[in-house]
Design a protein around this nucleic acid. Structure first.
Length: 507
RNA sequence: GGCGGCAUACCCAAGUGGUAAGGGAGCGGUCUGCAAAACCGUUAUUCACCGGUUCAAAUCCGGUUGCCGCCUCCA
């Protein structure tokens, strides 16, 4: 595609992407609730929108990417007046609730950095926007789309549905929802209608995270923070709202309702908080959904360390990123040791190609231009752009990179080769190839950060491999093999090549 | 029950009207003291099943079967 198209959940169609105020693009993504370490699902969502962020920037847009941090715990269960998830963790760990939120927020940032994520432009916290949330709730009340019961404020879905239409995003019909859930409407509920949801909850005595409001000492409802913070930083009507598919209902549906109830423009004017609603699909593990409630949500840190009964080995963060990018973001992606190991090997091969790419002298390969190779390299950028323009199809972009890999290998191989490309084509290709890998896909951090330790190790290994080469020249295989075996035991792999011996530390 | 998605080789996975991408694994080969790695080549007449539309369908329509997600906190 020659222009960016995105799949919009709101219209259920792929649409041409046209920002409201080019060259500016506003994007809001639902971030984590910080009461535990991040798992694979968090990674998928963050990676999906990291790609969107990167690609929009690479396309020349000026992007403001807002990703919230939910540090209000909310309740374990709407019907309970019990403690929130954050408070529960705080009690278990004997920490201040805010300490828990900060701890897991720090961990989240660390994990995301390991996965090659760019930091968003703004990372607002729910607890930092209590006043704004109270203001918006007041407006919704003033507009008649909410009501108070015992100090709690609920969104009045039926009232809203009269003037707007509730369910526009998820394709739900309020009447069906009513008919279907009438029997689970329990007597104790303060809500007038089962579809109503809390905007403000009065705190029970055990609820520690609490703030003053005109209605009660309490805390904001689950959905309101996103409406409020997106409006504050991106306006009432902005370009992109992203999140996982599991947030589509009720969370995003509620957000749209709140936004319309507050701003009163609504879909009659084609405005539903954001112009494009993008949703990444779920991750499964051997065909089964990964979820907290299912207990099979393997944490990112466990993948990195390999310390989990389901994992056969540790997996590098970049292996995980790469694997996720090999599938389209709107498809489910199935994790398993076999699949991850396949990605690991594939990534290794690409890394090899990247290293070779740097070592090719374009002048020396210009001898005889081979039309086929020339064409492969010359069309590279246009091909990858077309794939990314098609709803960020990173799977295709990566496949295209692999199609260029044999060309890189051929050019690298031997200088007497009759294969060649023009230096101009090659130089442009090399720039593009690296840009796609590092900047568009964010795979640049493949190589480990170099440090002093590494310099020392380089020096030591230089000495060792040199001694071993001498032994090999003397055909002293016993010594040569002993060196290799001993290093192998230390997880240092030696590989003999025609030019000398390569080594690397096994992960 | 309501809403939605998926079913492509041994595994992962692209592909939504023009005659099956890519990765891994397997197999054959090159290289190599050996090993490992790397490189080259190769692997689905066929896209769950049945019917229909079309010159043409994995791709569109109808039906069947199976799997999954959301509807409750979840990315």
């Amino acid at each position: 595609m020659d222009a960016l198209h995105v799949y919009n959940s709101l219209t259920r169609r792929k649409e041409r992407f046209e920002p409201i105020n080019p060259p500016f693009v506003g994007m809001y993504v639902c971030g984590p609730t910080v009461y535990g370490n991040a798992h694979l699902g968090h990674a998928r969502s963050a990676i999906t929108f990291d790609i969107v962020f990167r690609y929009l920037k690479a396309s020349g847009y000026q992007v403001r990417y807002v990703r919230n941090v939910t540090d209000v715990g909310h309740l374990e269960n709407d019907a309970d007046e019990g403690e929130s998830k954050v408070e529960k963790q705080a009690r278990i760990q004997q920490l201040e609730p805010m300490e828990v939120a900060q701890l897991y927020f720090n961990n989240y940032i660390e994990d995301m950095a390991a996965l090659g994520m760019l930091r968003p432009s703004i990372e607002p916290r729910a607890t930092g926007h209590i006043l704004e949330q109270i203001e918006v709730i007041q407006q919704i009340l003033d507009h008649g789309y909410a009501y108070e019961v015992n100090g709690s404020i609920y969104f009045d879905v039926p009232a809203y549905n009269k003037d707007f239409s509730y369910g526009i995003l998820s394709g739900r019909d309020l009447d069906n929802m009513l008919a279907e859930s009438r029997d689970n409407l329990e007597g104790g509920s303060e809500k007038r209608h089962p579809a109503d949801f809390a905007l403000w909850k009065k705190a029970s005595p055990s609820h520690i995270m609490r703030w003053n409001s005109p209605w009660s000492v309490g805390f904001p409802g689950w959905h309101i923070e996103c409406t409020v913070m997106s409006t504050k930083y991106l306006g009432e009507w902005y370009d992109i709202h992203g999140g996982g598919m599991d947030l589509l209902f009720p969370h995003h549906e509620a957000e749209i309702a709140q936004s319309n109830a507050c701003n009163l423009h609504g879909h009659a004017h084609g405005k539903n908080e954001a112009k494009y609603w993008l949703h990444n699909n779920m991750i499964t593990y051997e065909g089964q959904k990964m979820g907290k409630s299912l207990g099979n949500a393997i944490g990112l840190r466990e993948f990195f360390s390999g310390d989990h009964p389901l994992l056969e080995q540790p997996y590098a963060p970049m292996t995980i990123r790469f694997f996720i990018l090999q599938a389209h973001y709107r498809s489910t992606v199935d994790f398993s040791n076999a699949a991850l190991q396949a990605a690991e090997r594939g990534l290794q091969r690409m890394g090899e190609g990247l290293k070779r790419l740097a070592g090719i002298d374009p002048q020396a390969r210009a001898v005889a231009v081979n039309p086929e190779l020339e064409q492969n390299l010359a069309s590279f950028r246009a091909d990858v752009t077309a794939h990314m323009n098609d709803d960020f199809n990173t799977a295709k972009a990566i496949a295209r990179m692999y199609e260029a890999l044999p060309v890189i290998n051929q050019l690298y191989k031997d200088s007497s080769s009759t294969f060649g490309v023009s230096p101009e084509t090659f130089t442009t290709f090399r720039q593009d190839f690296l840009a796609v890998w590092q900047d568009w896909l964010g795979m640049g951090a493949t190589t480990e950060a170099a440090g002093q330790q590494e310099d020392l190790l380089d020096g030591l290994m230089g000495v060792i491999t040199e001694l071993r080469s001498q032994a090999r020249q003397a055909k002293d295989w016993a010594v040569a093999d002993q060196i290799r075996d001993r290093l192998n035991a230390l997880h240092i792999k030696l590989e003999d090549t025609p030019d000398g011996t390569d080594w690397y530390v096994e992960k």
